[in-house]
Design a protein around this nucleic acid. Structure first.
Lengths: 340, 340
DNA sequence: AAGATTATGAGGTACGTAAATCAGAAATTT
DNA sequence: AAATTTCTGATTTACGTACCTCATAATCTT
């Protein structure tokens, strides 16, 4: 049988109350006694029954997700996944709050974090903006004993317990690799569109892409990066100019959002279609992949990210370890053949 | 507050005992009363507290994993993941048994299943061989109320509740797609090595690969498939002959195990190295990818598969729904750039 | 050494559900 | 209408842990 707290008490020769004090870090136990109890715990291999403990505590994990209210499909998917997780709350003993903040708005995010500091939940997941005002607030949350996870876009480590998202430098390199190899020695110009170079993840993707493409296809001419502010209309107009100005355009990499503009532009091209690589699988990009308009999609699964963040927050809130391999977010590569 | 069984009783105007009878499908409730209780459950949105229920039942889920004792790294990884899951048993209320059976041995597998039928656990996960003797035993298990999942290699649907593994036809197409595009218009011969065409998953991969490569690179000459029995030495000797007999060999796809032979052969090639695509990420294939000996690895994550199978088995054992999106096993594509 | 302080023990209740018993009500059969 | 059978209610115990109170033992202060 699985050992219980009673077994610890018997083994250590103390009462249940003392075991409880040790287990739950309550005061009033001499160091020597505490060690005896801990030794007994190790010896008999006691593992706290989390279900019973939660039941006894009537514990529900209050978790807050702070996500920008951007209208791009990735952020939308992220919010939908939070909503779905919210519905599972009764089963999973979570009470999830979704806090939508204006996109790219440091002050708005800071304000949302201040509200959380005033009324701290057990855990907070934030799509962070890397700025001192945000960093310091995240540290305050952690100091208050709140489990803190950054989502999608990271911060300096002191501001969070864990980052749930992909390695964007590697994502850029992957895009560069695919672009270079799919081009198969052809020469010409390649265009890159970012949302904004003020975003760390976009900067990382660009750097990785340029580095890797330069290695594999040194003869390809990489055009100056264009910024779309993640706006589909702007993506489209930027591409229109690029097609006009560079008749030898053989590849396009959209490393930010606004894929609607990319697809619209590609579906209008006459002559040979350029290779296209973009991020985030959505109904739109999925269809473009199936239709052959886009050649590859790099993806981070929003469902995985939200569920992973919840697991990590619950574990940190309980002071339990995390299965690292399970919580690493993959850079998925999708071709039309391996669509899920 | 979350509604409890007491709330149901009050709402339906019956006693707790009757609610319990309805909830746990015990006899002794008139149809009319049962409906009243069920209506009350719907009305107040009751969700059974699984943790409390398990606590009350002192339930642990006895789960058996039946996995071939092949020495290839994928099956090894699968067994390791089961062992790891076994250690988490105390936390997750599972009692996991790993049953290793001889590889490719229908009679041995049938015998292992018979033992399980005689002493049925709550759930069984099997790396199945698609044969009538196996199929019928799986059906017997299901009829006995055991949750049944096929692992890696599937069976007809009547023999299992769920399949935990990848779509191998799609995996083959993905390999064909990558091969075709990476070749970038070059012409020559492409070799394919399977473990055994008696295995359904290997047949599927081959079919998908041939189909897709033919579309993308019609000028490429696909050599007759060779069978390695998943033996590294045989993979190597087959490749040696292929290199000798076909000087224009420009691509190799190993769709089964035995990658050690593939890597050994590739590292000895003189002149231009052929494109190489293989399955399953391991320390060996990872290194080969990093060194540029292999160009792409298709992968199914053994950790995900085992954890998914456990979640599914527990859910089926409780008659709970499964989050389908979470349990779909991805066909991962790894290049040297997006290695985890 | 008396008093103050800190450790520990003993015992209980609570969490939400499962499962059992036994008594009594209602429906069905004879 | 009586005897059976089938439902239903009321109540209790158990699961493993958390957390509370009260009493007493051990240790430290002055």
């Amino acid at each position: 049988m699985k050992p219980t707290v009673h077994d610890i008490a018997r083994e250590a020769g103390v009462s249940l109350a003392t075991v409880d004090r040790v287990l739950n870090r309550r005061p009033g136990v001499r160091a020597a006694t505490r060690e005896r109890v801990e030794a007994a715990i190790d010896r008999i291999g006691f593992v706290r029954d989390v279900a019973a403990a939660n039941l006894a505590k009537s514990r529900t994990y209050a978790l807050a997700f702070v996500i920008p209210e951007s209208d791009n499909s990735f952020m939308q998917a992220l919010r939908d996944e939070v909503a779905a997780a919210r519905l599972r709350g009764a089963l999973e003993r979570t009470d999830i709050t979704l806090i939508a903040v204006p996109a790219f708005d440091e002050a708005g995010l800071a304000q949302a974090l201040d509200a959380l500091i005033a009324n701290p939940p057990a855990g907070v997941a934030v799509v962070a903006i890397d700025a001192p005002a945000i960093q310091s607030r995240m540290e305050r949350l952690r100091d208050a004993g709140v489990a803190v996870v950054t989502l999608v876009s990271d911060l300096a480590a002191s501001g969070r317990d864990h980052f749930t998202g992909i390695d964007n430098l590697a994502a850029g390199r992957t895009a560069g690799s695919l672009m270079g190899r799919f081009l198969g020695g052809r020469t010409g110009a390649v265009a890159v569109i970012a949302g904004s170079l003020r975003l760390g993840d976009h900067r990382d993707r660009l750097a990785g892409f340029a580095e890797r493409l330069g290695q594999i296809a040194p003869d390809v001419r990489l055009l100056d990066v264009m910024e779309s502010q993640d706006d589909p209309a702007r993506v489209k107009s930027l591409l229109t100019s690029a097609f006009r100005d560079h008749p030898d355009l053989i590849g396009v990499y959209n490393l930010g959002a606004g894929n609607r503009g990319l697809v619209a532009s590609l579906s209008q091209t006459t002559g040979e279609r350029p290779l296209a690589i973009a991020h985030e699988l959505s109904p739109l990009t999925r269809k473009a992949l199936e239709d052959g308009l886009i050649d590859a999609i790099l993806n981070q699964d929003p469902g995985h990210e939200i569920r992973s963040a919840i697991r990590v927050l619950k574990a940190r809130a309980d002071g339990l370890p995390v299965i690292a391999a399970q919580e690493r977010i993959r850079i998925d590569i999708f071709l039309k053949d391996n669509l899920p």
